[in-house]
Amino acid sequence: MEIKNLTTEQRNPDTMHIDSMSTLDMVKTINQEDKKVALAVGTQDKKIALAIDEAATRYHNGGRLIYIGAGTSGRLGVLDAAELVPTYGINPDRAIGLIAGGKGAMYVAVEGAEDSEKLAQQDLKELKLNKKDIVLGLAASGRTPYVIGGLDYANEVGALTISIACVKDSEIGHYADIAIEAVVGPEVITGSTRMKAGTAQKMILNMISTGVMIKQGKVYENIMIDVKPTNSKLIDRACRIIQATTNAPIEKALNTLKETNNDVGLAIIMLKNNQSLSQAKSLLSTTNGNVAEVLNKELAN
Rank of each mutant, 00 (worst) to 15 (best):
I30C: 11
T199H: 05
D53C: 10
M207G: 01
V167D: 03
D152S: 15
D236C: 00
Y88R: 05
P92S: 13
A292C: 07
N301P: 06
G89W: 08
T260K: 00
V41D: 08
V108W: 02
E171T: 14
H60K: 15
S192E: 07
N12T: 09
N296Q: 14
G137E: 04
S73R: 02
H174C: 13
A82L: 13
G150V: 09
N130P: 10
L295K: 01
G63F: 01
N5L: 13
L65A: 09
P86R: 10
D123Y: 11
S276F: 11
S163F: 06
A105T: 05
C239G: 03
M1T: 13
Q44I: 02
A49S: 15
I241M: 13
D19A: 11
R143Y: 04
L295S: 07
K258T: 12
Q243V: 04
L254G: 00
N301T: 14
S192Q: 04
T256S: 12
Y107G: 03
A179Q: 03
M207V: 12
G42K: 15
D236I: 06
A38N: 05
Y67P: 05
P13W: 04
L127G: 00
L76S: 01
G289Q: 07
E111W: 07
T7C: 08
I180S: 11
G42R: 13
G137S: 08
E171F: 04
T199Q: 08
D53V: 08
T286P: 03
A38C: 11
S282P: 00
E83T: 06
N91Y: 07
P13Q: 11
D93N: 15
E33T: 10
T8G: 04
Y153R: 07
K215M: 11
T245L: 02
G217A: 09
D80R: 01
S73E: 09
L76E: 04
A95C: 12
G173S: 10
Y153S: 10
D133G: 10
I3W: 09
Q275P: 00
T29R: 14
T245K: 02
N274G: 12
K4R: 15
G149F: 00
V27N: 08
N91R: 12
E2W: 05
M224D: 02
N274E: 14
S20D: 15
I30L: 12
G63W: 00
T230K: 12
E9V: 06
E117C: 12
K46S: 14
L65Y: 05
L283K: 12
L124W: 08
E33W: 11
A95I: 03
L151R: 06
V37H: 01
A159Y: 01
K281T: 12
G289N: 01
Y175K: 15
G101E: 03
N5Y: 14
N262G: 00
